[in-house]
Structure formats: structure tokens, C-alpha cells
Amino acid sequence: MQDTGKNIIIAGVGGQGILLFSNLLSKYYMKLGYELKISDVIGLGQRGGGVESHFRYSTKPVLSPFIKSGDVDYLLSFEQTETLRYLHCLKDDGIVFSSTFELSTSSVNTKLEKDMPESKTELIKRSGKKTFIIDPDEYKSADFDISKMMNIVMLAIYAEFRGYAHEEMIQIVKENVPEKFVAGNIKAYEKGIEIAQACPPTP
């Protein structure tokens, strides 16, 4: 085993399937014999709240359930305001995968707070980290809206980037999602591979 382990933060908002994402990914690393610790720190539990998952796999026993700031290898984010919250946690050579999807924040909606003046996508691009930006609208078609299955799309993008065997990942998806969703999930996964191959990193 060449890869001795990585620290990943998975971020987004409630209802985006982040827990399923980390569950599927954990199955992959378990099959490879890694030790894991996954901490799912959910906000107030309501829909629309921020969700943050600390995912650690290693050839040695994983100690802290939380990743220390500066120790994150990959930030996989499903919502771009949430991406901004974790940029400072990345290693100097850490890598960002971020959707441009944005769920407006209630405090801005109600004018209790001002929104950031700059474009959030630009802030992410200018973070100085290697960044993959995924715009779900760009890949939206009449019969298929990837924003609804971003967790599976992200799984494919991550797997492609890491050079993992897609057949194995698809097998894990098949084994772990309810039967009636399998076909849709596989379609989303294949779309994810396509996006990954077309999506250049910034800078």
C-alpha cells in the first residue's frame, strides 16, 4: 500500500446526501484494509443547515476524530459558502473540489447580515490551492439534473482524480443504495466521470 492515508473534509448543507457520500467512500477504504474515523458533525439538524464530515483513513490507527487545521488533504464541498468555511483547514498543497451550488443563508435573506461582496466562486479560485470547480447548471439537461445527485457525482470525480477503479466504486453504490435508486445513481456516477475528465483544475 503506497498511500498511507489522507484527511478529507466533506462539506455542504442538509439534504445533499453527505452522510451517504462518506458512507460509500468508507466502504471503499475498508475493502482496502485501511483504518477509518469519520465524524459527522451536523448543525442544528434542520434542513438547510451546514453539514461537515471529517473523514480520515490511514494504515495506522486514526487518533483524533477531528482533523487539525492545516492537516486537510482534500476538501470536497457541495455548496460554495460552505467551501469558504474550510479553506483555511487545508494543507499548503491541499486540493479543493467545490460545487458552485449556493443555498442562500437565512441571515442574509433576512438582512441580519450582509452577503460577501465578492463572488464566492472567485474567492475559492483565488485561495491559492489547486481547485476543481464544478458548476452543476453547466451539466444540467432536460432529463437529468446533477445538482440533485451531487454526492454520487462528487464520488465519481474524486475516484477519477485519485485513479480509483470505477467498477469497484459502482459496485459499492449498488450494494448500498436502495434498489429503486441504483439506476439513477449509476447514471449520476457516469456523468461524474465525464465531468472529471472535462474539468480542468485552477490554477
Binding site: 448543525g43 438547510g48 468555511r85 479553506l87 483555511h88 443563508t105 441571515s107 433576512t110 452577503d115
Partner: peptide, 15 residues
Amino acid sequence: RMLMEGIPFRLPVSC
């Protein structure tokens, strides 16, 4: 390592 400033807060909202 410092958190970026000015990121809006998610106040709890009902379903």
C-alpha cells in the same frame, strides 16, 4: 490558520 472573514451564518430555519 484563520477562518476567512465575513462568511454569512446559517441561522436555523424551519422546514
